[in-house]
Design a protein around this nucleic acid. Structure first.
Lengths: 338, 338
DNA sequence: TTGAAAGCGGTACCAA
DNA sequence: TTGGTACCGCTTTCAA
């Protein structure tokens, strides 16, 4: 059905080996032979069977990516960055979504390992590191993206999440907020880091933190869960006058709850999100957000993956920590207090 | 390095064939032997080499997806739908982005064919059907998503784009718009269909259409290009009082241009987008949009792909045409004219 | 410069 | 019920 080297070799009275060498630009091949082979390849529209090549070389030229949610713009941007770097190097990207579910993630990773991917990139929803031990056994390189694990010496590319929390919180303090709430995310390193940064910033500035003003959630961080969390926070006395949200979808829900309650943003409550989603600028109230450098993360992760794959000897794990940046928009733009 | 069948067979004094049969639940295997093999597989954490299996069976259990833009929420949603169906059936999805570039798309498709994917799903940016002839030669099933070709008998899953244009335009007429503009997309079937539906609806209702009010663009349909198009339209006399936009990102740019000009939405200009992006509800002015059923498209396309892959004999091309739905929000909500 | 043989890790077919 | 043999399409090694 498909054209094989064998067919070309037969047509030209050559051996398969010769054809194979031409394909891979092997030096010792007669110029005339090379031409004939190349010509015939064009004619027959030959495409090497990458699966067969992978089997013998042990390199599939496939990289696996597991993210919690493809719809989340942050991960979509990372995927896009990865995909463009890999394309130029002849790698393909198998993308799978774990739906923020640890067990599903395990399955996806197993599946990828069985596929003999050359590396696995994961924004993990696990709380244990067991999956990663399995990857290590297989000697497949892996890189954690966005979310990391304290006890795991591994490659990591992401932003400094404590800085994220600190940037957002300090900004809220600076614009005059005194009762600053936090709507957190799932139990992963990013949420923990941002919460820590938030707490730390408040303490450093001598602003009181009451646990009542911190809403952590089991569920996924979406606009629906953000809405619900904010409704709860607005029931407190005094009500918060600033909110730092785990991510932008959460912040959108939070803002909706505030407006639905008849309050103004930022006059009554200032809001800061995280992720700097593309549409943040066009929202009902344009959203101040901490940029996570999604494109840079994709780019750096792809480069790191390639260097690890191409290294002859095992590399020691590298950490790429990018600086987050605060993008101020209307949702927190208030005159600074006197 | 990795555990192979050979290792398990040796350990247990069995043949590779027997191990292989156990793995695939072949009926004629002694229950005791089966247990021993299964036990050893667990112990060694055996994972079958899918690349090897693919080579001999001719089925890779990989499906390729090519989209113009992973960041576009519509395609992200489709990808997510696909990915979840395929996961449950043991297939993986290789996703690549063509960046709305026909040549890049060709390359990506070639790459996927070389990978021996079992099917290719494409939301194409081509204007010619040559790539698809190549796919046909290879006898790899393919399914067009969202965008189709007039002269090509192929599988297709998408919405009825003329209905999209008609729904949007009729709605604008009904809320009293008299000078209805259209900001179009790139030269692909969706843009053509929507434009046609728009024209047709205007004619049917006896509303004049001047070509001046139709802005078509070479470039990608983004918020930036939408902004630019709307600035141009606002320079016309009379200025449009309704705009139907090719997609939601475009509509966002259009709305920004309107607001920047000091006009009100929907009182001065009503706006309708297309795609019903998740965030449409939370925009500065919540956006009326035609829902393209992205999730359903992903789901149906995945099912169609599986049925074609699993069919013994070549199937005749199927077309799945979903009905678009208009979601009315504030950007076009005006009292109906008397 | 060219090619024969071996083998990558599985599966299919048929014989024992 | 079990296993020997051939082979999927390609690369590697080494000899001609």
């Amino acid at each position: 059905m498909a054209v094989r080297m064998k067919d070309i070799a037969r047509d030209l009275g050559l051996s398969v080996v010769t054809v194979s060498k031409v394909l891979r630009d092997h030096p010792d091949i007669g110029p005339e032979t090379r031409e004939r082979v190349l010509k015939r390849m064009k004619e027959l529209n030959y495409r090497p069977n990458l699966a067969a090549r992978a089997l013998v070389t042990g390199r599939s030229h496939i990289v696996g990516l597991v993210v919690p949610d493809l719809l989340h713009p942050f991960f979509a941007e990372v995927a896009k960055g990865l995909s463009s770097v890999f394309h130029t190097k002849g790698y393909n990207l198998v993308i799978s979504s774990s739906e923020e579910d640890a067990e599903l993630e395990q399955q996806e990773i197993e599946q990828l390992l069985a596929r003999q991917v050359d590396a696995v990139l994961v924004a993990s929803s696990q709380w244990s590191v067991e999956s990663f031990r399995r990857i290590e056994e297989q000697k497949t390189p892996y890189i954690l993206i966005d979310r990391k694990f304290a006890g795991l010496r591994s490659n990591f590319v992401g932003v400094d999440d404590e800085r994220v929390g600190a940037l957002a919180t300090e900004h809220l303090i600076e614009v005059g907020c005194r009762t600053i709430a936090h709507v957190g995310g799932p139990q992963v390193s990013t949420a923990v880091g941002r919460l820590f940064g938030y707490r730390h910033a408040l303490m450093r500035r001598g602003v009181a933190v009451s646990p009542d003003y911190i809403v952590e959630r089991e569920q996924r961080a979406t606009d629906a869960s953000g809405y619900q969390a904010m409704v709860q926070l607005l029931g407190l006395d005094p009500r918060p006058d600033g909110v730092f949200c785990y991510n932008d979808p959460t912040a959108i829900g939070v803002m909706k709850a505030i407006l639905d309650a008849g309050l103004r943003i930022p006059e009554d409550v200032a809001v800061v999100g995280c992720g700097n989603a593309r549409y943040a600028d066009f929202l009902r109230v344009p959203l101040t957000s901490v940029d996570q450098q999604s494109e840079a993360i994709g780019d750096r992760a792809a480069r790191l993956a390639l260097s690890v794959i191409e290294a002859k000897t095992p590399q020691r794990p590298a950490t790429v920590l990018l600086e987050p940046r605060l993008i101020v928009r209307e949702s927190s733009r208030r005159p600074k207090p006197a």
